[in-house]
Design a protein around this nucleic acid. Sequence first.
DNA 1: CCCGTTACCTAGTGATCGCTAGGTAGTCTG
DNA 2: CAGACTACCTAGCGATCACTAGGTAACGGG
Lengths: 189, 189
Amino acid sequence: MRTRMNREDRRTAILDAAIAVIGERGFHGFSIRELALRCAMTDAGLLHHFGSKTDLLLAVLDRRDMQDEHAIAALLPHGAAPRSRAQVLQVLAAIVARNAQHPELVRLYAMLRVEALAADHPAHAYFVTRDRMARRRFAELLNLPGEAPDRLARQVLSAMDGLELQWLQEERGFDLVATWNETAERLIP
Amino acid sequence: MRTRMNREDRRTAILDAAIAVIGERGFHGFSIRELALRCAMTDAGLLHHFGSKTDLLLAVLDRRDMQDEHAIAALLPHGAAPRSRAQVLQVLAAIVARNAQHPELVRLYAMLRVEALAADHPAHAYFVTRDRMARRRFAELLNLPGEAPDRLARQVLSAMDGLELQWLQEERGFDLVATWNETAERLIP
DNA sequence: CCCGTTACCTAGTGATCGCTAGGTAGTCTG
DNA sequence: CAGACTACCTAGCGATCACTAGGTAACGGG
């Protein structure tokens, strides 16, 4: 009766379910027992794979990071290659389009980013580092003539995050990519 | 030794502390005991004033709503009075400036807005209604010639929310109002 | 100054939390 | 096909959860 999976498959299944659960209730708000139930197992069984609640959270972030790293790196241009405004807009559109295909991930990050404002949250350091890096990357990308790149990067990044959250709240009731393109078109000189 | 307050003062003190605590840990993440401790009382004492955890949350939202209602209404122009682009920008700047003076409130709303994406969250209905109203108001305000007001309203609102969150995350490390003005200047044609 | 009201407490309720110890039973290797 | 390995379980730990019942003592009105 009881299903037994190999290590890798089980860990993947748990992490996928964790993305949804943590995105819905937050790190403080979900329980290991509840998550284990969704995976048709006990909390003790789940903890056999991830030693603690905090370890589980970090494992989620770790895994998503590795996967996203490749995708984003493929989208961003390398080095100091000269880029046109049109190219920049195209890169941004590709990033948003990618996010539009993974709403649970957008929700997870929206939730954790707010929770992790608290200095004692287990993902606090992660988000400080991650978002600083994101700002640096965007600043490099947006290094257009006559612009202060980090100021612009901040505005573009936060407009993107804000719009994605709005999109979740309206239950994907508008075209995220098209609306973003309109925003970007105006925001980037 | 034990301090006894009158109903109104105590309720106000609790609600103020609740804004901070819920903003930090979220509705699911904070405990009544923890909040009561910050008010130098027991959880039973606190529950004497607010019957349940959910009631407390709704009381917080209720009170902030009444207070904000007056302030926002005073900022927004009434009726279909004709308005210039400059006037619109000025109104938006005033709203952001007001928020910059109440970071705990910005944080509370950022937290609850994400948590309340879940349909079973006690503040879900509240935020659906509230944000729909906000979008309508902004659309009315932004009803400028040659624009689709609700599309623009969505973009302006989400850029504002996103930037405020960023501002919290960078520990208020940049000038929120100035940065917002730069964004608005570009976003609004 | 007394008496009703009420702010707030102590002491508990059962439920659930994260987590551990130790066992059971599938699976893989030699 | 035996034995090592390990995925997963049952049982239970102490802590904490939201919340209740019933008491105590400070206040306000007469």
